[in-house]
Amino acid sequence: MRMNLGMFLGIAAILIALSKYEKSPPVVPVEKTRYFGTTVTPMDYEKSDTFVRPVYLNGGWVGAAGTGGSSVGGALSLPAPWHPGLTVRVKWRRCERFYKHNPIPDSEACHWTEKHVLVHPYDESGGTNVHILENDDVLIIPTMLDPRHPDYPGPLYPEKDFRLKKGISK
């Protein structure tokens, strides 16, 4: 069978088109982010005799900020693994102490603070410490370590004595 010029050019065009055809890359399933729950210990480092109550992380209540150690109030869900830029929205209310003989209304004695805070890098976590420092600075440290451990990346437990400064204990 003889091919005429038109058939030859038609077949050549089809072969050239097929040779440039690229297969689409294989579909890679999208991996869903895994999350884990961690207990939260909010701690108050302000040197004054004010108190922080309540504390919220990402809209969820996690308790009152104390001196740490035994005060676990709530939980926080964190992604596994940690990634740069991970933040948590922290909201808390700091109040002046209550004076029985000269009460101050909450609207004057208390103020709210809310901010997005970067989460300290973690590989694993047995609990999350929220350090509310002076000047409304905040550290969020998910960790397996106690603040007294030499490798702990944040401050030691606060030294604030809530009962003595508030006149509860003598």
Rank of each mutant, 00 (worst) to 15 (best):
E46R: 10
P54D: 11
S48N: 05
V40K: 04
L18T: 03
P25F: 11
V72Y: 13
V117P: 09
W82H: 13
A109N: 08
K170V: 08
T38H: 03
K165W: 10
Y157H: 03
A12Y: 04
N135P: 03
P147F: 07
V28A: 03
H120Q: 14
Y152K: 03
S19T: 02
L139W: 04
L164I: 11
T143C: 10
C110T: 05
R93E: 00
P155A: 00
V90G: 00
T41A: 13
A75R: 14
T33C: 09
T87G: 12
R163N: 12
Y157F: 08
R163H: 07
S48H: 02
A12S: 09
G74A: 06
L156C: 14
K115T: 08
G73P: 11
V28E: 13
E22Q: 10
I132T: 02
G68V: 02
V119R: 01
W112G: 02
P26M: 04
D136V: 00
G126M: 10
Y157D: 08
Y45E: 01
Y56W: 14
G154M: 00
N102W: 09
V90M: 06
E22H: 14
G10R: 11
Y157G: 03
T41P: 09
A64P: 01
M1E: 15
I168N: 09
A12F: 13
M144Q: 12
V28T: 11
V72I: 13
G167C: 11
W61C: 02
E159K: 11
D44R: 00
S70V: 15
T128Y: 07
A13M: 07
R163P: 00
G167N: 05
E31P: 03
I140G: 06
N4C: 11
M7N: 14
A75Q: 13
K20Q: 12
P158C: 07
E22N: 12
E46N: 12
V62M: 02
G59Y: 01
E96H: 01
